[in-house]
């Protein structure tokens, strides 16, 4: 026989009942629920980091090898084969490559954040935004680890003294994270309904690679093209990193305005789109 003892004091009245569906679908609801599930976010990021290096000899060193090899290839190709001259080419290239790798891998991973986790989404209720955001944070962690090695190294090699503008680095990094989260959430939503988006993303990223001042110096291109490049999604952030670290100067008004505007627009649009369609994911998978 089952005997029952009420666990909580019985308070009756309809006002204590809330519609669970009213809270979800709003931007505030989404943001709040992600914060509630920060423990899950942490564990998902840790899982990806652990799994990436588990069983390999070099472990974390592999994260340094990838940008290093890319750096060497570009330096050989541009500086020695094509004979491109320019002050601090390697340093500028490195800052851009690190930021670009963070951006592009984050978007590729977060686009599949929902569709690749079908079983989980169909069986457990939790804020789905945690999934794409976790893959962005995983890439952010990788970025921070590599940047923490390479940027001080470059500063030493170039004998660049620390300067006040460098304090802006966390601000622009935060803005880049906001931009990436916004686009990543939008892509994760879109891919759930249209799988083509992943293929489109690949093409868009390879175009964007050339519209971002990565393997060329922004200052060496002519003025109308400068504006075009400046409005490419990641350019303002790359320029900001290059200016504060290499040139030791402030990022400039145009770059700052574009960086802030892009981050805010992308983040709010991404979160709004995601919250609007979040409840339909489980039926689409």
């Amino acid at each position: 026989m089952i005997s029952r003892t009420p666990a909580a004091p019985n308070t009756t009245g309809a006002e204590a009942l809330v519609d669970a569906n009213a809270a979800t679908g709003t931007i505030a609801g989404t943001v709040q629920s992600i914060f509630q599930y920060r423990e899950l976010l942490k564990h998902l990021v840790l899982k990806d980091l652990k799994l990436k290096y588990r069983g390999s000899w070099l472990g974390f060193v592999w994260s340094l090898v990838n940008p290093l090899v890319m750096l060497i290839v570009y330096v050989v190709a541009f500086k020695y084969i094509l004979g491109v001259r320019g002050e601090g080419f390697v340093f500028l290239l490195l800052l851009a490559i690190l930021a670009w790798t963070f951006f592009s891998s984050s978007l590729s991973m977060s686009a599949g954040g929902i569709v690749d986790n079908g079983a989980l989404i169909k069986t457990v209720a939790f804020p789905r935004a945690v999934l794409p955001i976790a893959s962005i944070f995983f890439n952010l962690a990788q970025y921070l680890l590599t940047a923490a090695v390479f940027i001080p190294l470059m500063l030493l090699l170039h004998r660049t003294p620390p300067s006040v503008p460098m304090l802006l680095f966390p601000v622009f990094l935060l803005l880049q994270v906001a931009l990436t989260v916004g686009i990543g959430l939008a892509l994760a939503t879109g891919t759930t309904f249209f799988r083509d988006i992943r293929h489109f993303l690949e093409i868009a990223l390879s175009v964007m690679f050339w519209t971002t001042p990565i393997i060329y110096d922004f200052n060496t291109i002519s003025s109308p093209w400068q504006w075009l490049v400046l409005f490419s999604p990641l350019s303002s952030y790359v320029l900001a990193y290059q200016r504060i670290f290499f040139y030791g100067e402030w990022p400039g008004v145009a770059v700052s305005i574009i960086a802030v505007a892009y981050a805010l627009v992308a983040l709010s649009a991404g979160v709004a789109l995601f919250s609007r369609y979040e409840r339909e994911f489980s039926e689409q998978l």
Binding site: A14, D19, A20, A125
Partner: peptide, 14 residues
């Protein structure tokens, strides 16, 4: 909370 109702409500105690 895995699916959204087409119509009607699911109320849960706060």
């Amino acid at each position: 909370g895995l699916h959204r109702p087409t119509s009607g409500h699911v109320l849960t105690r706060r």
